[in-house]
Design a protein around this nucleic acid. Structure first.
Lengths: 205, 205
DNA sequence: GGAAATTTTAGGGAAAACCCTTAGTGTGGT
DNA sequence: ACCACACTAAGGGTTTTCCCTAAAATTTCC
């Protein structure tokens, strides 16, 4: 997670609008890329670098709301700021419930926009860090064999080796082996750390 | 947490509207109480029984948005459905960002409204259960003495008694005592359960 | 000042966890 | 058939935790 500079994506079919937005963003030192359609953006973006998306709704081809849906369905965590000229209440409600971070109407005050962008970028950095922790945990969990995972889970729930042996109907010695192997693979020491790792990995799963 | 029936609060200064809403809600078996102002509602509601709030924005006295803010500031977890006749985009955005679960415009389709209410009630039940777990955990934690809490935290982080003794510069025997007392007070057995309890209590703190 | 609670330390024994090696069995792939 | 891997099991020793009793020093509160 090398702390890369923020990148703002601007998706709008109106070229003048894109230019103007990017000019504004670059004037405060934000890197910025333009896309004329949802598809062009989808093909290009990577959800690993802190940033956010400034998105228009009314566009030829895939609409902004559709893009918003497909982003969240695809597990993306990039914050989206809707910026539209012809918004109505149902549209705003749908966008925000679909996970948009904000819904701004053109024309929009420059400073307000920049503030929202900064908020969104911070939020994305936060989410990226969180996702990193969980995916790290889950990746280590994936390296366990079925039996090891089974034993590790029971350990994380506070059962003793003896109780686990009874539960799984295997010998105490076998449990010790699985437990030890799991601990090594997960790089944890002791039941407490294992329990924490387990909670981290399973929350929001 | 005796599983009480749902209770829907309706806050609107227009009496005809309140009546009509309550008639609709009662027709599907939902209990329902009416309030003509934000203040009347604030004085009466209790955030322990599953339900939701149907809230108008434009009212004499405290506005619906103000009520929404003061609810979330007060730590309430009651889901709020905004139902207003004169909504605009900025108002909807503000309401949703302030935590409203939905923003509906009058007149509103009956079935849509009832669906949203049911969703909101389920959501509240879910939140109540979560809050219950956390407050139980925190309450038990509050019964620990300072030293016990200190020791328990280090145990939950995976440190051995010996390591804790070094950290706190006290004897191993003392650590054992504090650890044991903490375990008894927290009603947990083993480091794993303690770690889980700790995570439960501290998350979202 | 005295009672109650907290913090501190200790001895000693039973239970559990931890660490090492060795090894038989079964399964899947080359 | 052979190899790699997972699962199983055991012996034996060290360390840590768990559980009991006992008690002194300290702090807090009335």
């Amino acid at each position: 997670m090398t702390d890369q500079p923020a990148l703002v994506y601007v998706v709008d079919d109106d070229e003048a609008m894109r230019r103007s937005l990017c000019w504004l963003l670059r004037s405060v030192g934000l890197e910025c890329r333009e896309y004329a359609s949802a598809d062009a953006f989808t093909a290009a973006f990577e959800d690993t670098r802190p940033g956010c998306l400034l998105l228009d709704i009314r566009m030829p081809g895939q609409s902004g709301l559709d893009l918003l849906d497909s982003l969240s369905k695809g597990g993306a965590i990039l914050p989206v700021l809707i910026l539209t000229g012809h918004g109505d209440v149902p549209m705003a409600v749908r966008a925000l419930k679909a996970g948009a971070m904000d819904f701004l109407e053109k024309p929009c005050n420059d400073q307000v926009l920049l503030d929202r962008v900064q908020e969104a970028v911070s939020e994305h950095a936060r989410r990226l860090a969180e996702r990193e922790v969980r995916s790290e945990a889950r990746q280590r969990l994936d390296n366990l064999t079925a039996r090891e995972r089974q034993v590790a889970e029971l350990v994380s729930r506070g059962l003793s080796n003896k109780a686990i042996a009874r539960d799984l109907e295997i010998s105490l010695k076998t449990v010790e082996v699985h437990r030890h192997n799991a601990m090594v693979k997960l790089k944890v020491e002791g039941a407490a750390e294992l329990a924490r790792l387990w909670v981290e990995a399973e929350e929001g799963a």
